[in-house]
């Protein structure tokens, strides 16, 4: 019993440490955006995020309304900064997913 508790605690600790680390080192960020209808929208997204140092590439899919932000190795970009970038471009963030 003691061993199980010990193992579970260890597992919990590993997961706790791993989760934020995973978020911080995620190389691809997928942002679902409302209001993306044309190429000017796509250009705006690229201009806004390509200016940021940790960003390597930005791809806009007008069909899925997903803006994919690829980060440079070791680069990070928090949700607040992503939301601000998209709001500054005049659009609305629906969701952010990382992997």
């Amino acid at each position: 019993m003691k061993k199980i508790i010990k193992n579970l605690t260890m597992l919990g600790l590993v997961l706790l440490l791993a989760a934020p680390a995973q978020a911080a080192t995620a190389k691809h960020i997928f942002v679902t955006v409302n209001g993306l209808v044309c190429d000017f929208c796509a250009v705006s997204m690229k201009k806004i995020f390509m200016k940021k140092a940790p960003v390597e590439a930005v791809t806009v899919n007008l069909t899925t309304k997903i803006v994919e932000i690829d980060l440079k190795p070791g680069g990070t970009l928090d949700d607040r900064e992503i939301k601000k970038g998209i709001t500054d471009a005049g659009y609305a963030v629906v969701g952010i997913r990382r992997d």
Partner: peptide, 12 residues
């Protein structure tokens, strides 16, 4: 001046 923008899933 953009007084208002309606950002919808499939329209703007």
């Amino acid at each position: 001046w953009l007084a208002h923008r309606w950002n919808q899933k499939d329209s703007q």
